[in-house]
């Protein structure tokens, strides 16, 4: 089966996010009050061949840990769905 995978990469808690902080200041300057906790990450999408969703998730998490993220500064969440 083929699965659509979405990897949401974000900075770990405690790691400075200058892009997020800059956007937050800009939003405030534009008059959008009350917007906080802005963070900037990236999304990686791909499809993967696997026997089932569990195997697809395991593979995706493995390649996240080994390549798509730098665990020193980044975390990721993986979403897997059967390809439509």
């Amino acid at each position: 089966m083929r699965f659509d995978v979405v990897v949401d990469v974000r900075l770990r808690g405690g790691i400075a996010d200058p892009a997020g902080a800059t956007i937050e200041r800009a939003l405030s300057a534009l008059g959008y009050e009350g917007v906080t906790e802005v963070s900037v990450g990236k999304t990686v999408r791909f499809t993967i061949e696997a026997a089932d969703a569990t195997e697809a998730t395991t593979q995706a998490e493995d390649l996240c840990a080994s390549f798509l993220t730098n665990p020193v500064i980044e975390d990721a969440s993986v979403t897997v769905e059967a390809a439509g």
């Binding site: 900075l11 790691i15 400075a16 200058p18 892009a19 800059t22 730098n70 020193v72 500064i73």
Partner: peptide, 17 residues
């Protein structure tokens, strides 16, 4: 070298962007 694991830590975007 940090990505290769030969040195610890990581380099992130400069404060001030």
């Amino acid at each position: 070298l940090t990505e290769a694991g030969l040195l610890p830590g990581a380099l992130q975007k400069n404060v001030g962007l």
